[in-house]
Structure formats: C-alpha cells, structure tokens
Amino acid sequence: MTATAPRRTGAVTPGRGTTETPPRRAAIAARTLRTDRWWLQPLVTVVVLVLFIAYSTVRAFQNAHYFSEPYISPFYSPCITTDCEGDTFPELFTGPSWISPAIYILVIPLGFRLTCYYYRKAYYRSFWQSPPACAVAEPHRRYTGETRLPLLGQNLHRYFFYAGLVFNVILTYDAVLAFRDETGAWGHMGLGTLVLLANAALLWLYSVSCHSCRHIVGGRLNSFSRHPLRYRFWTVVSRLNAHHMKFAWVSLFGVAFADFYVLLLATDTISDLRFF
C-alpha cells in the first residue's frame, strides 16, 4: 500500500487532525518496564564527557606547558599568536596576553564534535535525556527536536567538517615536524612523535568516517553507476562510517592523551623515550 498510493487518495481515512481527542493509550503508569541497566550507558557517557570537558577546559585556559621541543599539544595547534611557544605555525597576530592561544582555535574541533551525528545521539541521550534510553520516557513536557534555533544549527556540521580537515592537515604537519630533534635537525623519533602521529591518524579516521563526508563524497548521488569513482569513495567511507562511534571516542581519548603527554614533558615530569 505504501508503495504506490497516490497522495491523499489512498483507501485510508484522512488524519484526524488535532481537534479531536486522541483515542486512549494503554494505561501503564511506569516510566519504563525495562529490567536491564538502561541507565548505565548514559551515566558512563556523562562521566567520561564531563571528565574530558573539565580537563580540556583547564588545559585550554592554562596557557602554559603546551610545547616541549619538538612537540606541540593538539589543543594549541595551530598556534597563531605571537605569544606562542615554539614555531610550528606562522604567528598571525598579537592577542591580549591573558587570552590563551587555544581559545582562538578550539571552536573548530569543538563545533565539529558538538554537531557530529554520533555525539548528538550521545549527549541528547545522556545530558538532555531525550530519551535517556530506548522506550524510557523522557522528562520533558514539550519536544521540538532540531526544528528551531539553536538546534537548527546542527545542520552546519559539514562546514565544521571542512574546517576540521584543515586542522587535521596542520596536526599531521605537527607530527611530521616531530621527526626533528630539539635543535631542529631532522632524523629524530621519540615516543612523542608516535603519540602525535597516532593522534593525527585517529583524527583523520574520525573525520573521514563522518556522515557528512559520506554524503559529500557520493551519498548525494542517485546514480552511482554514472560516477564509479565517487561510488568507490562512498563505499570506503561507508565502511568506515560503520565505526564512526568507535573513532569518535578513541580520537577524543587520543587528543587528551597527546596533550597530557606534552604536559608531562613540558613540566619535566618525564623525559621523552627516544628511538633515534
């Protein structure tokens, strides 16, 4: 029936509209009858995300210990003010010294993750409880979803994706620069180089597996056979996309760990394990 019924001419009675009192649902008072630990997943999500937000906020405002030759923390790259430690990126302007250089740039990765289709699911469920778990009633009286501002802004995801790609290039460049030693001579590799390389690789995987990327490389086409190359791209991205949630979490931990490693080096808590 749903396949071919012409619009509003099906053998089905038209909608009742909103004027008539809707027929009654089954009277079940319990918010949910689920017997499993449905609250565990949103709870873990809240705890982990709050820990990350707390750590990254402290580090972003700290404005110190983010550079240890030749490594720069991903929270501060690209470092674009003249106050920056190190010289991994052109210094574009002089900002007030009390503003951390991280503040200028973190809006891009933050925006990319905030508007990400996976993270939306994660924080709508855990923070906003809309819904906390499947078939568990949400606590809100009204619900309009992403139909109005500010949540209509989630549709900007693809622009954060494009900007995030630029950041990935810069962070990959940072990892390449980490093959220099303290004096700037090439031919060095330490554990920090591996950490920055792994961080860049995870960020690429997270970005490329994104739903917007999947749409842009080929998902928007209706005829794959006329675009065989884009179909190949779409197939690869679709395969990665199935693991988007995994990449979202692992790359989040990766960024925090890379920053933490640089923090430990910059405060002389540990010294870098040097391979050559």
Partner: peptide, 29 residues
Amino acid sequence: TPMRTFPVVRDLVTDVSYNYEKAAQIPAF
C-alpha cells in the same frame, strides 16, 4: 504490554492506523 505509542484496542492489540494515514500522505513513486 501493548505498544505504548498507539491507542489500545484491547489487551495486546493496538490501533496502528496513524501509520497508514502517514503512509498515504507520502508523494508516491
């Protein structure tokens, strides 16, 4: 229990006509 989203007819049987109304509104192939 019956599906909660739809009006109950009796016991485990619900009235799912909401779905057929929505189906009929979709511009056909």
